[in-house]
Computed example of a mutant assay.
Amino acid sequence: MKPLLKVMVVLTLIFASTFILGRVLGILTVENVRWLLEEAQQVDPTYVIAAVILLLFIDLFVAVPTLTITLLAGYFLGFPLGMASALTGTTLAVLGGYWISQRYGDRALGFLVKDEEERSKMAQAFARSGPAMIMLARSAPMIPEVTACMAGVTRMPLLRYLVFYALGTVPYVGIAAYAGSISTLNDPKPAIFAALGLYATLWIGWFVYQRVEAKNKRSNQYS
Rank of each mutant, 00 (worst) to 15 (best):
Y98E: 13
Y98R: 13
Y98G: 11
Y98Q: 13
Y98W: 05
W99G: 11
I100Y: 06
I100Q: 10
I100S: 11
S101C: 03
Q102F: 00
Q102C: 02
R103M: 03
Y104P: 03
Y104D: 11
Y104H: 13
Y104G: 08
G105I: 02
D106A: 13
D106G: 07
D106C: 00
D106W: 00
A108Y: 04
A108W: 06
L109V: 06
L109I: 05
G110T: 03
F111R: 15
L112W: 09
L112M: 13
V113Y: 05
V113R: 11
V113I: 14
K114E: 15
K114P: 00
K114C: 02
D115F: 01
D115W: 02
D115Q: 10
E116R: 14
E116A: 14
E117M: 04
E118Q: 15
E118F: 00
E118Y: 01
E118N: 06
E118G: 04
E118R: 10
R119M: 03
S120H: 10
K121E: 15
K121Y: 04
K121V: 01
K121D: 13
M122G: 10
M122R: 11
M122N: 12
M122L: 15
A123D: 12
Q124M: 04
A125K: 06
F126W: 09
F126M: 12
F126K: 14
R128A: 11
R128L: 06
R128Q: 13
S129A: 12
S129C: 01
S129N: 08
G130E: 06
P131N: 10
A132T: 09
M133N: 07
M133A: 14
M133T: 03
M133C: 11
M133E: 07
I134A: 08
I134Q: 08
I134V: 15
I134P: 03
M135V: 11
M135D: 09
M135N: 07
L136C: 10
L136R: 07
L136D: 09
A137G: 07
A137V: 02
S139I: 01
S139H: 04
S139T: 07
A140G: 05
A140C: 03
A140Y: 04
P141D: 05
P141N: 12
P141R: 09
